[in-house]
Design a protein around this nucleic acid. Structure first.
Length: 877
RNA sequence: GCGGAUGUGCCGGAGCGGUCAAACGGAACAGACUCAAGAUCUGUCGGCUUAGUGCCUACACAGGUUCAAAUCCUGUCAUCCGCACCA
């Protein structure tokens, strides 16, 4: 069976690549480096799925291409091996997560080998191994020392299914990112945070520098969410309470205030008479999880306190409400029910006055308030600010407030600090110790890593807490008995710097050697899915900046260039999922067809950045084509390449090179197919044949190595130089030869036909330099055979254009339906007017009829003269 | 609600102002080869057709800009994705 042969070939070359360490690299200052990286996978027990195969093939093609192009290519693979699924699966299977994960990784490695991915396997890493997570702990302590890590009690997101807390980034629409059915609850816990907000501004500003898909950049921008506004100080019970608003212009319409129910200073506001009500309210909203946000009514309770509006001196009641976010701004808002929908609903519910202070325009009032008027407008009922536009009022108020020391112009971010504590086992232990005397103390560097204990019980609460031997320790500072932190780190901590560890993955003394990292960083091409736009990609950017400030690297950004591959759907068009039963297993496909055929098919499906649909027939036919190519190229007749073959091959080199650079692999394959069909039955020089094989090699690395060898080469094709296109051999004329002949013939015929008519009428000749057919020679020959006005016209035009350095291109004769509407000859914009003036003369004498040159400047004139504006035209009268 | 993307033939998808009834692939149909199937090759593959280098209708829908629009602009609709009570 042919399939077996392919699999034998694949195995042979995979073995040889490994033996010869073909893809292992070291720092070489003389060579240009290229760091190609795919987002490392979570090694699930299920093994590789088709989406992985797609992702890795995209990266592999790029890496192979760059390697052959002379770059020193670092292309590593590793495993994001910590995480909840392994822990749960391990519990279910009664196996330790460590062995479970190691087995899964082995399986992944085997499968990635089978795909023929050219990883530098020496650099493999797994985040669950102590030699890796030791450095997580090291960084954690470094960050702690720098004040980038802190512990805080706050309202946190709790997923009951994961039984752990989640970062904001891991809560999607009130649900857990892993459990789309599970509502996230709010808990008040003391947790570890990373001060990602220390870099908010830089994270936001540097997005501009990134060569990333626009939508990912926008998603990050929105996630950071900068908004400009005003800080205004209200006075409550003699104390100052600043609030943030984007609508300072509505300040005269404030009729109440709302403080977040979770606000840490809420207690200060509650009067004894109201305490019972407030407590009841708090209890009520605590039992409600953060769900169905639209459905959630705006609710609140009066605290008993009143706030003084700094502009009006009015006293307005302060409510505690469920719709104000404690962490955003100052956790309190001024409520303007007339001009904010939430405030409006709240006011209606609790019967609070609604004061209009903005009208749509000077003479337009609001008819009746069924909902808030939230647009900008003109101020009313606002004393000296009446009549001002919202924009102007905001500015005036800002300066007024700062002059009186009651507020200022400011801005706010949505972005919050990263909660990294997790109450789970399978992660990096947080290297902190609680001592009764010394408080929170980091573990001594020399005692790292803090190893995950083995003697834990799963199932009830935080597993690490169940290990006596782990929890009990000595205070690193005073030596007294102390307790260890039992939380582990969010696994996103692991993936925030793994790209640095690849640069020096065996270093036992430090996380990575700075020199090595400086050589390889930043990642030149990062490849992965869009789902990490606001998680991994933000954390990794933060980490890079933080490490830069710790003087461990100098890069500002880890991934200047990012490519998002599309999603691969099942044959039925749905997302591939086990429950739908539409999963296609890549290894099955490789066994049935071949790795090269699978790669070929995956890359032909669609442009790698768009979603695509798996098609079994496509797989079948890709396999047939690969088989055919292999068979045919093995028996290719070596000889002198014809001009046609030379043209094809050189054009192919040029085009495919550009297509790979631009990730247009699907188009590259079309050109490869086309070129193959052309050379299939032709004689071809060894050199050209080798070029073709090289061009094919990133896509089908196994058969091409085999072909390379069969041609008598002793080297590895994967390390051969990428062919260069010989531009002098590319002949556009030849390339279009077949279609050209047909086109010309029909053109000539058309003109003949037109010319034989009594009335020549109007002939449109469109000449565009865009069409580089080089038709002139062919035309001239035809011209000599017959003589009639139509052809002469063409000949003249050609000559005239040649004279003025214009390339004669294609001439399209058409009968004009409505001669009154159409200029007769439209020339390209590039044609000089002078050339036209000259052409006019010869046309006139040749035809003996009036020739008018029209150069219209504007559309009116153009219409009058039947010419296009700005474009010169010749009209035969 | 806000933001982003997309809408092309039976399907997956190219095209990004004039070489467009639309690359390439898949499916389908017909033919060649076969005892037959498969494989392979050839042709057809929007409609009409006097079969023509012909006509009509087409690139979500409706308008607009152009001599010229699948391509540019405006609006509408649909689908997908992200964010979501951020003051």
């Amino acid at each position: 069976m042919a399939e077996n042969e392919f699999n034998k070939i694949a195995a042979k070359w995979q073995k040889r690549w490994a033996e010869k360490k073909a893809f292992e690299v070291s720092e070489d200052p003389k060579k240009k480096k290229c760091y190609v990286l795919e987002m490392f996978p979570y090694p699930s027990g299920a093994g590789l799925h088709m989406g992985h195969s797609l992702n890795y093939t995209i990266g592999d093609i790029f890496a192979r291409y760059k390697r052959m192009s002379g770059y020193n290519v670092l292309y590593p693979m590793g495993y994001d091996a910590f995480g909840l699924p392994a822990e749960n699966a391990a519990i279910k299977a009664g196996e330790h997560p460590a062995s479970y994960t190691e087995n899964s990784m082995k399986n992944f490695v085997m499968q990635q080998h089978a795909l023929g991915i050219s990883y530098s396997w020496d650099r493999m890493l797994a985040t669950c191994r102590p030699e890796y997570y030791k450095w997580n702990q090291h960084f954690f302590i470094k960050f702690y020392e720098k004040g980038l890590v802190y512990r805080k009690k706050s309202a946190v997101n709790w997923c009951p299914d994961c039984s752990t807390v989640l970062a904001n980034e891991q809560v999607h629409s009130g649900k857990c990112w892993r459990h789309t059915e599970t509502d996230v609850e709010t808990k008040h816990l003391e947790q570890w945070f990373i001060k990602t907000t220390a870099y908010t501004e830089e994270l936001l500003a540097d997005i501009k520098k990134l060569n990333w898909p626009e939508r990912i950049k926008i998603m990050q921008e929105n996630w950071i969410g900068k908004s400009h506004g005003t800080e205004i100080e209200f006075e409550i019970n003699g104390k100052k309470w600043p609030i943030f608003t984007t609508r300072a212009d509505t300040i005269f319409g404030v009729t109440f205030m709302v403080v977040a129910a979770q606000h840490p200073r809420l207690g200060e506001l509650v009067t004894p008479e109201q305490k019972q009500n407030v407590d009841a309210f708090l209890k009520k909203i605590k039992s409600v999880s953060e769900k169905e946000l639209e459905a959630l009514d705006k609710e609140g309770v009066f605290t008993g306190s009143y706030a003084i509006n700094p502009m009006t001196g009015d006293k307005v009641p302060v409510y505690a409400g469920n719709f104000v976010i404690a962490e955003y701004g100052s956790g309190m808002v001024m409520a303007v029910p007339a001009h904010d929908q939430r405030d409006f609903e709240f006011a209606k519910k609790y019967d609070i006055p609604i004061n209009e202070v903005i009208h749509p325009s000077k003479d337009k009032k609001l008819d009746d308030l069924k909902k808030a008027y939230t647009e900008y407008g003109v101020l009313v009922n606002s004393r000296e600010f009446n009549g001002l536009s919202s924009e102007a009022a905001i500015e005036k108020l800002q300066s007024w407030l700062s002059k009186h020391n009651l507020g200022k112009k400011t801005f706010n971010y949505k972005f919050r600090d990263w909660l990294v504590s997790r109450q789970r086992y399978w992660g990096t232990p947080i290297p902190m110790v609680y001592c009764d005397k010394c408080g929170v103390v980091p573990v001594d560097e020399k005692d790292l890593p803090v190893l995950l204990p083995k003697d834990v019980k799963f199932g009830h609460g935080n597993p690490l807490a169940s290990s006596e031997s782990f929890v009990r320790t000595k205070c690193p500072r005073c030596g007294a008995a102390a307790k260890r932190e039992t939380d582990t780190m969010d696994t996103f901590f692991d993936s925030s710097w793994y790209f640095l560890r690849y640069c020096d993955n065996k270093n036992e003394a430090i996380a990575f050697d700075r020199k090595k990292a400086e050589y390889w960083m930043p990642v030149d091409q990062y490849i992965g899915g869009a789902e990490h736009a606001c998680m991994h990609l933000i954390y990794a950017r933060f980490f890079t900046k933080a490490l830069r400030d710790l003087r461990m690297i100098s890069a500002d950004e880890p991934f200047p260039r990012l490519f998002n591959q599309g999603m691969l759907h099942g044959p039925d068009g749905n997302k591939m999922s086990k429950s739908l039963g539409n999963v296609v297993n890549p290894i099955e496909m490789i066994e049935r067809y071949s790795a090269d055929a699978l790669r070929f098919n995956l890359m032909s499906l669609a442009s790698p950045d768009s979603n695509s649909v798996w098609n079994d027939n496509g797989m079948e036919s890709a396999s047939k084509f690969v088989t055919k190519m292999f068979g045919s190229l093995t028996h290719e007749k070596i000889g002198k390449s014809s001009k046609g073959v030379e043209n094809k091959i050189n054009k192919l080199i040029k085009d495919v090179t550009a297509d790979i650079e631009g990730f247009k692999y699907n188009l590259a394959l079309i050109k490869i197919r086309d070129a193959f069909e052309y050379i299939e039955h032709e004689k071809i020089s060894k050199r050209d044949l080798e070029s073709f094989i090289k061009i094919l090699s990133p896509f089908c690395p196994h058969i091409t190595e085999e072909l390379w060898e069969r041609l008598g080469n002793k080297t590895l094709l994967s390390l051969e130089p990428w062919p260069k296109a010989d531009e002098s051999k590319i002949d556009e004329k030849l390339d279009a030869c077949d279609s050209l002949a047909a086109c010309t013939r029909s053109d000539i015929n058309a003109v003949k036909k037109l010319a034989s008519l009594d009335k020549i009428g109007k002939i449109t000749i469109i000449i565009s330099p865009k069409w580089k057919y080089g038709l002139f020679d062919v035309l001239k020959k035809e011209m000599q055979k017959t003589r009639n006005p139509g052809e002469i016209l063409k000949a003249i035009m050609s000559t005239e254009l040649k004279k003025h350095g214009q390339d004669i291109t294609r001439i399209v004769p058409t009968v004009v339906k409505d001669p009154s509407k159409m200029p007769t000859i439209i020339l390209s914009q590039e044609l000089e007017r002078k050339a036209l003036e000259e052409a006019k003369e010869s046309l006139a004498s040749e035809f003996g009829c009036g020739v008018e040159v029209v150069i219209a400047e504007d559309s009116k004139e153009a219409k009058a003269k039947n010419a296009a504006p700005g474009k010169p035209a010749i009209v035969l009268a």
